[in-house]
Design a protein around this nucleic acid. Structure first.
Lengths: 346, 346
DNA sequence: ATGAAAGCGCTAACAA
DNA sequence: TTGTTAGCGCTTTCAT
């Protein structure tokens, strides 16, 4: 009888294969693989050789099973299409790597079921900690449950669970910077295009309204419904400019994507930016920096957000428990080409 | 003595805890968790109740250790900043989910060391299959080694390993579509901004050159070095328009990002798009569709690329071995607002 | 329909 | 310095 069908059936080498090939016990192999001391140079070399020639790779499942840790940080990202989260991810990856962790990214479409599946995956993989990134539709209950098993930190402000660390940009202050910048240029009719249901949108709206009031522009407050998308910004402007009464001379969009949509809508209305209308965005993603866009915007320290969130998690990993801390990172105004003084007659 | 320090020490429930709570053996619990038949309705219900109330989640490490499969497909993405890959990822996720697989994304910075680390992670996690997405600096040798252990499919054309499936857009044809479109509008001096080292750039360049020759425009072939980035397109145009001789009337940029950079560079030279110069991009990412950009471009079926790559992997999973197949998906011209006939005097 | 037992590949005492 | 042993949490025969 032929020994085997066409399928090679060649199972990956295990610690035992290496031990046999090197003529030592599997403990020695284990020690070598983990760079532990207490192995003779000769044994070490033989093990290394055997591992190399057999193409040995440790089985993370087996290791994590006994060690009860995976050295992985799971990141649940809901919207990879928004450059903001990709840029935060850069910071997460860097910080994680710096501390000996690797990152596992899972994504979900934006329904709660898909989100909880993705979360479930991270839990089953026994990630040592979990980052929640992006607008989440997850219920507080579920998040609380997860946070009871594994350290969780969130970049989404709507998560209010006692043991979850929150790392956010100070959107309230950022929105004020935007309004103050426009007001300093001489604008008064400054409208906001809202960002929808994400919590950041709420905070930015509040900052906008507070700043307007503080500047004595309370009666100029106008908020158009919108989304954190180009389409949202586009629609927002159309709504804003189709209502009766004097038109805004400046538009503050809730994020860069919406700002780009807003610019386009203004163009479609034959309005020049910034000649007729000034536009400010939020996030300072690479989109805003593109020369064709050159958007005045509020910078969020995106990599720093990622780094801080990892730091929070590391703290929780080696000392479980404790109240969730909230960190607010400062925003910064970045002036580019989409803002200018209003036209004299306005 | 106090029972425990402040750290709860509450280890997650295991199959044994559930068995005890439900008053059955762990085999029964295992069957219930896997939806196997052959369990009495009563037992099943008791197990489900116990699992629910203790918040039980199976340990993927333990399961994958014994099953020798993780139900995960690993995806190595090198450039999440390029929307193209994000959109392909959508297709991968969808197709994987449809077949009972979940996706694990790992990223790397663009150096070979970081890439091989990410790959290593996927192997240690014993992903059932691996997708290589994005420009890779990995050596053939390493990829071949990995492909010997686990099914691998690649979206990067430079990978030439016998057992690796390749799924690519037909860039040669796509580039021809771009050139033909421009030629049909009346353009002759059609320049290409190259895309750098990614293999797709090479294929697009060849398609461009072939089409130019076929159209009798061989002496109009001009290729400026570039990159798959906005900056690359920007620099490319500046190089193109600073050389002596008649200027191009049309620019074909190797991808959408570069096209946007090109448009900006043209604007900085006081040239109108498409009035003075037409621009065509490649990929048809959402960037191209943004109204503010409205780029004529070559569509790649991004979700379909993801779906086909998963299909290839599934085939390999349940029947290892076999030569790598190469699939080429057809591109499609999408005409938007950045192309028009050349000026009469040109 | 259920349970007992072996073992997946590894680490972590412990013994030698 | 090395080897032996006992699990980690689960699935999978094999009995019952």
């Amino acid at each position: 009888m032929p020994a085997s069908p066409r399928s090679p059936e060649r199972r990956p080498p295990t610690i035992l294969s290496i031990a046999a090939a090197a003529g030592v016990s599997k403990s020695v192999v284990s020690r070598v693989m983990r760079n532990e001391p207490g192995v003779s140079a000769r044994s070490r070399q033989r093990v290394l050789n055997a591992a190399e020639s057999l193409g040995y790779t440790p089985n993370a499942a087996a290791r994590s099973l006994v060690q009860k840790r995976s050295n992985n940080i799971g990141v649940l990202v809901t919207d990879l299409h928004n450059p903001f989260f990709v840029e935060v991810l850069d910071g997460i990856n860097r910080a994680a790597a710096e501390h000996g962790y690797r990152t596992i990214i899972t994504t979900s479409s934006r329904d709660p079921l898909s989100e909880s599946h993705a979360l479930q995956q991270l839990i089953e993989l026994r990630a040592d900690a979990i980052v929640l990134a992006g607008p989440l539709g997850l219920g507080t209950e579920l998040v609380a449950d997860v946070a009871g098993r594994v350290p969780v930190a969130s970049l989404e402000g709507s998560i209010r669970v006692p043991s979850v660390d929150l790392v956010l940009g100070d959107d309230h202050q950022g929105a004020q910077l935007a309004v103050e910048h426009l007001a300093a240029l001489g604008h008064q009719r400054i409208a906001l295009i809202d960002g929808g249901t994400a919590h950041a949108a709420t905070r930015r709206r509040a900052g906008y309204e507070d700043a307007m009031r503080r500047l004595g522009l309370a009666d100029q407050i106008h908020v158009a419904p919108g989304e954190f998308t180009e389409e949202g910004g586009y629609q927002g402007v159309h709504r804003l400019f189709s209502r009766p009464g004097p038109r805004p001379t400046a538009v503050f969009a809730s994020n860069d994507l919406a700002a780009i949509g807003a610019i386009n809508a203004l163009e479609s209305l034959d309005l020049r930016v910034p000649g007729d209308v000034s536009v400010v965005g939020y996030d300072n993603t690479w989109l805003a920096a593109m020369r064709h866009i050159s958007l005045t915007t509020i910078d969020q320290p995106r990599p720093a957000l990622g780094e801080v969130v990892v730091a929070a998690l590391l703290r929780r990993i080696d000392q479980a428990g404790g109240e969730g801390r909230h960190r607010l990172l400062p925003p910064r105004l970045v002036v580019r080409a989409t803002t200018a003084a209003p036209r004299p007659q306005d």
